[in-house]
Design a protein around this nucleic acid. Structure first.
Lengths: 246, 246
DNA sequence: CGTGCCTTTGAAGCCTATCAACGGTCGTGG
DNA sequence: CCACGACCGTTGATAGGCTTCAAAGGCACG
């Protein structure tokens, strides 16, 4: 159990990381099968995991860095993202609690991973993790399932970015979050990200995201009870808005 | 060796498919390692593969269809794509000769695969292929490498779609094709796709793609010796144009 | 209680989609 | 071999959507 090399940063200063071993997976990315692939992999990897706290704005790993670990997000939120030369950011993947991330095949990271909320991650040394996976076909299959599922999600994002306008992207995003996020007591979705983060994820600006949310609220599709809380009042209306081209 | 269920279609009628067993991989998606992952997987899968010809415009598989096979593209070109309700298409992945595709984790296809040129594909029954992979850790690792590499490419596409404008997307696309395509005798890249296909891949229209190409030619970054041939005269200029935001 | 950051709203401008037309090329059939 | 037709590519004009620039209110945190 040792401190991770949590390098880089953009926002505020960085207090020392917390250390504690998180409990097993809070949810299983619905695989339908008998035992979810996520649970199989996490069970097997737990013995070699080390936990660390990452403050908001800090990087779990940077682009170009050696890919020495696989990661599991215990709490908080992480974005896998790239940076343009002018400092602009684009988010390739939104990582929520319970998700694995940083599963690179190459020697070096193709993108950075930034904590967008204070997060607790568990790191698994890649060499040891791969050895474990190699030794157990059942585990290998579960991992394969996760990797292909991740590819599927990325392609869904591509389809969304390619053909949908601002309203459609935001509506689609909300529906995705409705499925992936744990709902609050009143059924509202607690967004783990700011408007800026959403914008970078959808290839928009925060102003446009705000306008789209306002429009959806005007239509009665959603309600915004609190800053980070969104109530999906009319999923059908959202699904309809999703189809709106640009 | 039997006929594949090549359903669906858009363009012209469909003559009978050709049947022949293609030779081993014409190229190895540069893994750097001793033996490329592609070669390992293809060697192992060859015994259970059946070849089939797919005419341009026909589907290799349709969205929602059971994912019963893995595929390898021997020749031609294939696009993994989704269709909107209004008939608009967006391409999630461009498959070139030598690539594996259709590696779904779910029971059903999340997107369709359309031949954009007359193609020859080799199909591997998924159950038998997975059994083979399960039985050989070395094979499993190679397959994992391919899957993660594919995810990496998809995320690169996401970054491109998210932050680049038309000129940047086209420049980026040309550089990608320059790396993935086999060059002609004069060093020109032979594009396997039409302007329309490029547009659907980049989330643009064919007119905008055409304008971007004209602009790049005006800048001296490229030359267009023939309809489907593009000479990358100044890769540095292309890399520069790639960074152009919208 | 003060200070940032986040969010929302407004106005102007650029970029891209859309509609339209034309020339060129390829494939087909006479 | 030639002629025709369909498709592909290019270029222009217009409209619409999104980004950008700007400013103000609100909530959270110190």
């Amino acid at each position: 159990m040792q401190q991770l090399p949590a390098r880089g940063a953009r926002r505020g200063p960085a207090p020392p990381a917390r250390h504690h071993v998180p409990r097993p997976a809070p949810h299983d990315a619905g695989g339908g099968g008998a035992m979810p692939a996520h649970a199989i992999v996490l069970d097997a990897l737990r013995p070699i995991g080390t936990a660390a706290g990452i403050r908001r704005g800090r990087l779990v790993f940077a682009e170009g860095e050696p890919a020495a670990h696989w990661y599991w997000l215990a709490s908080g939120a992480v974005q896998v993202c790239g940076f343009a030369e002018d400092g602009k950011r684009h988010v390739a993947e939104l990582v929520l609690p319970g998700d694995l991330f940083g599963l690179e095949a190459c020697a070096r990271r193709g993108a950075a991973a930034e904590a967008v909320r204070d997060a607790v991650v568990v790191a698994y040394p890649r060499a040891r993790a791969e050895a474990l996976v190699d030794a157990d076909p059942r585990l290998a299959r579960a991992f394969r399932e996760i990797a292909c599922g991740r590819l599927h999600r990325a392609q869904a994002c591509l389809l969304r970015l390619g053909r949908a306008g601002a309203l459609g992207r935001v509506a689609s995003f909300l529906l995705e979050m409705g499925e992936r996020c744990r709902r609050g007591a009143d059924g509202a979705v607690d967004l783990p990200v700011t408007r800026d983060d959403i914008a970078d994820y959808l290839g928009l600006t925060s102003e446009t995201v705000s306008r789209a949310l306002t429009e959806l609220r005007r239509r009665g599709a959603i309600a915004l009870p609190a800053r980070r809380s969104i109530h999906l009042a009319d999923p059908a209306a959202l699904a309809l808005a999703k189809e709106a081209g640009r």
